[in-house]
Design a protein around this nucleic acid. Sequence first.
DNA 1: TTGTATGCGTTATCAA
DNA 2: TTGATAACGCATACAA
Lengths: 331, 331
Amino acid sequence: MLQYSNEKAYTFKGGRVNMVSISDVAKQAHVSKMTVSRVLNHPEQVSKEIFDTVQTAINELGYVQNRAGRALATNKSYTIAFVMLDEVAAVDPYFGQLVTYIADILNQAGYTMELHRSLDNDFHAIDGILVSGARESDDAQLNALTYPLVTYGEQAGAASVDVDNAAGIKLAKQHLVDAGYEQLIYLGLDLDEQFAQARLDGFLDSEIPVDQNNIYRIANDDHIARSLVQTLQLAPKTGIVAATDRLALGALYACLIDQQAVPQDVGIIGFDGIFIHQMGPLTLTTIAQPLERIAEAMVSQLLEQIEQQVRTNPHIVLTPELQLGDTTLHN
Amino acid sequence: MLQYSNEKAYTFKGGRVNMVSISDVAKQAHVSKMTVSRVLNHPEQVSKEIFDTVQTAINELGYVQNRAGRALATNKSYTIAFVMLDEVAAVDPYFGQLVTYIADILNQAGYTMELHRSLDNDFHAIDGILVSGARESDDAQLNALTYPLVTYGEQAGAASVDVDNAAGIKLAKQHLVDAGYEQLIYLGLDLDEQFAQARLDGFLDSEIPVDQNNIYRIANDDHIARSLVQTLQLAPKTGIVAATDRLALGALYACLIDQQAVPQDVGIIGFDGIFIHQMGPLTLTTIAQPLERIAEAMVSQLLEQIEQQVRTNPHIVLTPELQLGDTTLHN
DNA sequence: TTGTATGCGTTATCAA
DNA sequence: TTGATAACGCATACAA
């Protein structure tokens, strides 16, 4: 099923085209290579006249800096590795957003982002590493890395950026109570990971007492959540706190199928706020992870380590925000 | 809301740690630099004894090749730029999968993948470019690039890999007819893009005649699709062909709310098969884009250009596949 | 089979 | 303010 049609074909002379180097620019501008280098890196040290001459030459020749040469000379590559250890199938939409934000922010700072999917390969020519989806079993490998490093999610022995998961769930509870829901149910994850535990802890927080019998822990699957919720006898004015938007969506389906009025009789609030919350028959009310702020924090912490040439291990915690949708009552 | 706790802090001596070079290995193994280089690049030219000695030295010292040095010497960087021009919010889950496949495949081939989000920045130190989400307005910029280039989706003057959208929709029609649905409705996109037109063309294909009055074109939004379908009088045994899974999901919501039996009375089939199709109360039957094959085709076509040092413009078309779900009747 | 000399493009150092 | 020289780490060409 392949269609080939060679309309235009030209060779890349000598491997690549456009091999204008700093020497070519220097010749064209009748100055030394160093002067050209200074125009690029320390323009304040160059006289206005020469600066203009060199700039003109650069434009005329279409000179583009060769990063390999610079990397070799400066021992800096202006490249950051983003290592994505999560299973994409499980975290899909979140991944796309995070990687995009990080790439954009790094780009603005003059860096390039490489994408890696494993810690096993050697890293070459990078100035630092960002990691998402690391587990405890990755600790040894992470600690063996000799690069500036920031992880997403708490990690021993490494700088990290994380969301305050417990605070997020407390926010969710408060919102449901404020909206007049009287009985709270928790649809949680049966995962043995730190964030899952923290979200459960948030639900168990004593400020708003809850009934231990109303806590369920299942896999992060909307179909399973739907089945579970369909077995429950939901009293009027029930508020469902789901540990993820995906679970919340399952609860919503259950209500829809069983003719429960959402948000009048049952309120549903999810967690994450990334794509999935808007994929239901109703837009979910959710606790939104501040992905852009997460990306910014990860990058700025990493660049600080690079600049200071010191590896530090701060644990930066960001508070998620309530994002109103159509599955809870509110003004 | 920041918590800092510096447990361990050490400096990166001289910018980075671990600056073992080929010279250090050579010294340790009592050979010349060239012999070390050969062990790495042409092991067959080296005697077994020396090979082992050098390998031992490499392991002992923890030597990692410096890519900048190699790039400078060989004029190859073993780095590919993947330029993602799509709006992430619109194509979210698809993007995550594609970029992941491409990164993995490139990695296996010994390449590193950089992620870019614009064609505006200069590209340095790359061997080739992959592009997704280009529009006609990007043609000029793409043609100005002097690197080996492959785009996803048809593009003038560049090699491209695309899905046979018309064939996919024809597959969908055939499946619905085979399943016994008698009246076909098309829920299409109002976009002015090539793929949207191709999918419509597939529905209009004369092999299975359709009624022009049963064609609707809207934005790619499940809420809008739901509203639209709710206004339709769906005769029993109606088959809905949706141009995207997101539109199909909207149709499914409409049926659910209006108590139409899916798949018994109404059959629904989507297009894309990436994440969204499994996010509904029922798993969608869909025409799945072969993302992994797309990624493989893009990479292999690009590497071929790089190897041959020739820019060619084949148009590679891949056929999508029917993926059965719970929204159509079948055995 | 192994070693020597040279150059890739850039920047830092030092001298003018 | 500008320029000459050396160095970064590696691989190619050539010599031994």
